[in-house]
Design a protein around this nucleic acid. Structure first.
Lengths: 198, 198
DNA sequence: GTCTATATGTTGATAGAC
DNA sequence: GTCTATCAACATATAGAC
């Protein structure tokens, strides 16, 4: 469906293609502020037509958050995330999270903007917190191993590192001037070595 | 006004106290998704009463964004931001921005969530971009001076550093376990030296 | 797979009493 | 400084025709 809009355009949407566009609109206006009318306009069909594909606005959010969380949680299932020195595991998880983010910018963006204003949002936040806890423990271990500077607060450090990665959604675009690989390289370089020459 | 809600509570709000509460509700639900009804409920008065103090919902956003941007821009007016080696100026700006953020979490949070969905939001975004450009130039200079690693992309680096700082709004609370000073220390430490022991 | 028509509630903002 | 009452526009969602 890349043909431009016109009166006689047939859309033939399915759940997947509706979801992709919905997530973009959610990201532009915020999930709560997005109306089915805005979605309908972005899709070029009527509100009622959307209800043929999905039962509710919240169901679209559910699908999107499940996908984003699934991708992140899959990182921790990789053997590289649970084998070897903590500092190496941390490097692997940092790089993988950055790649997942650049691979699925819009889904991860939506996840990072959830504030917990419904039961569904709160359960997504809980899964996000579980992920963050794993990272915190990795930082803790690496610090106990003497691989991370002892002057840093481990909880603050874990948050700063993942905050840095998360901020990438605010500017990274797949068709932009900086490749996904270069982003991941720079994230790991800054996180581990800092910007300053020694 | 710390007395708990009750039927006979007198509020005696003024623009300032309404703004503080409004910004919190904007941050919880997003500006667009926040209704005057929600604001009224949070304030414990009716919608109409709000209009006695402010002419519109958007005016509250204007006040909040102006304040947040003013605080950030003031950093660049300090002599320390324009004197000496670029790397020292950069360190000063990074630390100051972190302090401004911890001092005014809710106002800065609101600013960082603006997406450009109205003329007003777009002009706030433009001021934010002007600030970011100054930082980018600082990173560029420091790299030209040989003080910042040459393998890093300067634009990406500037974004990652300020992304890391901005992410602090997602967890920092003035009454939390980590002091504003410790946050600023750790931000500068990670940004300049990285987490890893050499 | 999409439409029109409709139901029921909420939106931002105003008028005017106290 | 706050209230009640009101407005036109818009919210989510459904029913049923094509």
């Amino acid at each position: 469906m890349t043909e431009s809009e016109g009166n006689g355009t047939r859309h033939n949407y399915d759940q997947e293609s509706i979801l992709a566009i919905a997530v973009d609109v959610f990201n532009r206006h915020g999930y709560e502020a997005t109306s089915m009318g805005m979605l309908a306009e972005a899709l070029g069909i009527t509100k009622s037509a959307i209800y043929h594909h999905v039962p509710s606005k919240e169901y679209l959010l559910q699908l999107a958050l499940d996908r984003a969380l699934g991708r992140l949680e899959a990182i921790l299932d990789d053997p590289l995330a649970s084998t070897g020195p903590a500092i190496d595991k941390l490097r692997y998880v940092l790089r993988s999270a950055t790649s997942v983010l650049t691979d699925d910018v819009s889904f991860i963006t939506l996840l990072l903007r959830v504030r917990g204003n419904s039961e569904m949002e709160r359960s997504a936040l809980e899964r996000r917190r579980a992920f963050n806890r794993t990272i915190s423990e990795l930082v803790d271990q690496a610090q106990a191993d003497g691989a991370i500077r002892p002057d840093l607060d481990s909880r603050t450090t874990a948050r700063l590192l993942f905050g840095m990665i998360g901020s990438v959604v605010d500017w990274y675009r797949p068709d932009g001037p900086v490749s996904a690989e270069k982003v991941a390289d720079d994230v790991v370089a800054v996180a581990f070595g800092g910007v300053q020459v020694r």
